[in-house]
């Protein structure tokens, strides 16, 4: 009996050594360990083994079963490892990736978001207003004389009912002060329209970012600090900022803001980037007249306002040479801003 078991083990291990696939593995398992397998049959012979040998034979039987089983398992593991390796053997990682469609935001959205992030950090909340405006909101309330050239039909789009397309986002200053009380600290990005033929530096519809801060004791120093911080966050902490006296009907004093910027391969030069100033008391007076209260008493509140062209900001930040690229939506252009 012991010799028979030795033979079975020898035969089985020889058969296992010759296995090359999973089907053969199963055949061998059945031949030795299956219901009719030779080891199973041998085990059935245990009942004929004399009692005094039962222990030895039983022990041997277990040893042989263990040896065959572990050889089968080792071979099975080897076969699986081989199969796994084969599954990826022909994979060429240098092939181009399977493409997914790529998208991205418009450069104006990116510039706007940069600006909004910084200004929100500084405590400004967003505000908005209609683009189809009344002449009062766009001009009268902003201290613009009745015969100011900006009101001309040659410069401004009008509708038959006398309304117009706002020529600047400054009208949102008025819209905000009409409904909010001080303190007011808002930024208003949006479209503005001027009756300009479209070319490399003009669009009939363009984008502005307006800012307004009204409270007691708002000063020119606050305006200066705010815009210096803002532009240095956008263009770098070393950026030189200068305030050049200028004129706008709705601010007094008024300034234009220049940044000293350097385009690649060129000498740094002053670039006009924004207009700003202290809100003209006449604007507060007109808002107060409309509101019918003293929330914006020009004797008590002061404020600053600023406005800048987002299209121009994008041109400067990204080196875009022609404004028309911003409205053509050529995917080859848009892909550059991902």
């Amino acid at each position: 009996m012991l010799a028979q078991l030795d033979t079975i083990q020898t035969e089985a291990l020889a058969a296992i050594a010759g296995i090359t696939d999973e089907a053969a593995l199963e055949e061998v398992r059945i031949a030795f360990l299956g219901k009719k397998g030779s080891l199973t049959a041998a085990a059935a012979g245990m009942r004929d083994v004399p009692a005094e040998q039962k222990k030895d034979v039983g022990q041997k039987l277990n040893e042989v079963r263990e040896a065959i089983t572990s050889a089968l398992e080792a071979t099975a593991a080897g076969l699986i490892a081989k199969k796994d390796a084969a599954a990826f053997a022909n994979l060429d990682p240098t092939l181009p990736a399977r493409p997914l469609p790529k998208g991205g935001l418009h450069p104006l959205s990116l510039v706007l978001d940069e600006a909004v992030k910084v200004l929100r950090r500084m405590g400004f909340a967003l505000a908005e207003g209609p683009e189809i405006e009344t002449e009062w909101h766009c001009f009268d309330a902003l201290n613009t004389p009745a015969d100011h050239p900006a009101r001309n039909e040659s410069d401004t789009f009008y509708f038959e009912n006398g309304k117009l397309l706002r020529t600047h986002t400054s009208s949102v200053q008025i819209r905000t002060m009409e409904k909010e009380t001080t303190p007011v600290r808002i930024i208003a990005p949006g479209s503005a329209f001027r009756r300009d033929e479209i070319d490399a530096t003009h669009l009939s519809a363009f984008h502005q970012l307006e800012g307004l801060y009204v409270d007691r004791r708002v000063t020119l120093a606050d305006l200066k600090g705010t815009l210096e911080y803002f532009f240095r966050e956008i263009f770098g902490s070393k950026t030189e900022v200068r305030f050049r006296p200028h004129f706008f009907p709705f601010t007094e004093p008024s300034f234009e803001v220049d940044l000293k910027l350097q385009a690649a391969g060129r000498a740094a030069k002053w670039i006009e980037i924004a207009g700003c100033g202290m809100v003209d008391p006449a604007v507060f007076a007109e808002v107060g007249r409309k509101r019918g209260d003293a929330a914006y008493d020009p004797e008590k509140v002061t404020g600053f306002a600023f406005g800048m062209g987002l299209d121009r900001l994008a041109m400067i930040l990204y080196g875009i040479p022609d404004l028309r690229l911003l409205i053509e939506n050529d995917v080859r252009f848009l892909t550059q801003f991902r």
Partner: peptide, 13 residues
Amino acid sequence: ASLGFFETRNLKL
């Protein structure tokens, strides 16, 4: 943008 879309801005007129 993640779904493969490019944002456009067209003239409002």
